[in-house]
Amino acid sequence: MTKHTTAKELATVRPDVEEPMRRKVFKRVFRHMGVAVLGTVVAQAAIFSRPARAAKILRPPGALPEKEFDSTCIRCGLCVKDCPYDILKLASWADPAPLGTPFFVARQDPCRMCTDIPCVKACPTGALDPLLTDIRKADMGVAVLVDHENCLNYKGLTCSVCVRVCPIRGEAISLKPIQNERGLLQIPTVNPDKCTGCGTCEKHCVLSEAAIRVLPRELGLGVSGANAAGRGVW
């Protein structure tokens, strides 16, 4: 039986014999390839496991559209510190938003719509747009009366608390009469052009789970098609 001598053993017996150059090159090439493959796998996993923003996550006033916000926000938390009502939090790994980005949850604590907008002033990068000077033009989301089954106004009562608490009452949300088989109903109706998405209505909804919710605009609203007949073929 022949016993193969490994390069290492050979090196101890015959130190003058060097490891063949070709073997060294192969070793190096495969090591680099291994690192590259491992790196790609990890990086790809990182890209695809990037947590998408959950619907209940709302950005502070003046926040750029989500994609630009993600690249512009440097996760410093200066807006969080400057919020006089302490509604903002920076996302931890347990929160459904990119790590370290600021958010608030309307049902817990809505935006109080300060007229001087301190959070925007605090932002060093413009992720909260400094051009926003009128808080009524803020777009944190849009309120949508999502539940027509449990909303008390749909049951024929006049709860209307969402309308009464709205900081832009009468413009952003108002009662519209609707006649149906239950009789004349007063339905809270949101004007998406005026609603800033502050979340006060969601916070104060008397149901144990809110019937009216603030959603990021792209989730809360449809977009009419480019042609008159609706969406295109695709």
Binding site: R75, K89, L90, S92, D95, G100
Partner: peptide, 24 residues
């Protein structure tokens, strides 16, 4: 299009945990 290292950066992670006493 996101801040790649900031998804794990332990430096600011440590500070956030400390400031907001989260432990995730």
């Amino acid at each position: 299009g996101t801040l790649a290292w900031e998804m794990i950066n332990p430096i600011t992670l440590f500070q956030r945990e400390l400031m907001w006493t989260s432990a995730a």
